[in-house]
């Protein structure tokens, strides 16, 4: 493994901004893995850092392919993470809305261009991103539906779900979208949490990456088989939302199987403590996403439900 400085910006008031990469093997540019891109993506950083540690061990005992190269970038935005800020410290821009970047543009455009120039040459790209809404997910692979998406390859992760995201205009500047346009097979791996650490979820995603490595000849060691992924689009999910605002008492977890009519959450009057609304499942299925904040506004999408007709699982 070689630790390399991939990009730097001199700073006046604090240590220079630096993005480091960890390069395993050499030869065919087989896979690039990007961890946290925003300052609150602690789970993404943790997952990626553990992966670096595991890959180091695998490389040391000769289990990685010697003819292929894997590049891992655990933190694309360490300057924001150090000050617990989600977006760029100076102007609050989001690096994941700047791809493919512009080397003569504004700072985060330059960061995106500087990195993309180095990672767009890989055959496969894996990113550990976070969702823009606060909440917990069932683990899944998410792929932009650009026309270049490679769903069959995504099955190699063995995660329970593959979600095809129909891109909106603002998605066209994300890493996943641009990787695909530049002919990299791109996969976004979502675990349960973002701004805290969930060991089980990190392990699940690490195992899924190792499964992918094995499937594509990058790893010589056996890995336990994964699941047969269910494929659907983000528009197939049923959204449940409260009519009222208040304290959100969540009674079900992401990944749980639920019955039609099952009580999923209560909304309490924020000062008087009385239950003012109950949210029940409109169908049988699997809770794919749950809101995870103590308070909720009316009309917030608090649950995303995968109907049992799509989940193809006995309820």
């Amino acid at each position: 493994m070689k630790k390399e400085l991939l990009y730097t910006i001199p700073s006046l008031y604090r240590d220079d901004f630096r993005i480091h990469g960890y390069r395993f093997g050499q030869g065919r540019k087989a896979l690039c893995i990007v961890g946290s891109m925003r300052g609150n993506e602690y789970q993404q950083l943790y997952t990626c850092s553990r992966l670096v540690s595991i890959l180091k061990g695998l490389e040391a005992d000769g289990s990685l392919s010697s003819e292929d190269e894997i590049l891992v970038i655990p933190a694309l935005n360490p300057g924001s993470m150090n000050i617990e800020k989600r977006f760029w410290p100076k102007d609050n821009t989001d690096i994941n809305r700047m791809f493919p970047g512009y080397r003569l543009g504004e700072t985060t455009q330059r960061v995106a261009a500087g990195i993309f120039n180095q990672i767009s040459v890989y055959e496969n790209g894996i990113q550990f991103p976070s969702f823009y809404m606060p909440g917990n997910f069932s683990s899944h692979v998410r792929i932009m539906k650009t026309g270049y998406e490679n769903v069959e390859k995504a099955r190699a992760f063995g995660l329970p779900y593959i979600v095809l995201k129909v891109p909106k205009p603002y998605d066209t500047t994300t890493l996943n979208y641009n990787w695909q346009i530049w002919e990299t097979d791109a996969f976004s791996l979502y675990g349960t949490v973002t701004d805290s650490i969930d060991e089980a979820s990190a392990q699940e995603l690490i195992q899924s990456v190792l499964r992918f490595l094995k499937a594509y000849g990058l790893l010589k060691r056996e890995i336990p088989a994964g699941m047969d992924s269910i494929v659907f689009t983000d528009r197939d999910l049923i959204t449940l939302r409260p009519k009222t605002s208040g304290i959100f008492r969540c009674l079900a977890s992401a990944g749980a199987r639920v019955q039609k009519g099952q009580l999923l959450a209560q909304i309490l009057d924020a000062c008087e403590g009385e239950i003012i609304e109950e949210i029940r499942s409109s169908d049988s299925g699997i809770l794919f996403f749950t809101h995870n904040r103590p308070l909720v506004y009316a009309n917030t999408a608090v649950f995303k439900l995968l109907s049992s007709s799509l989940a193809a699982a006995p309820i």
Binding site: N92, R97, Y170, T239, R241, A301
Partner: peptide, 20 residues
Amino acid sequence: FDLDMNRIFPGEPDGTLTEY
């Protein structure tokens, strides 16, 4: 949400609170 409101139009009736 720390979202740029001028990047979510025309919104979605079944989307998130902000899109709604």
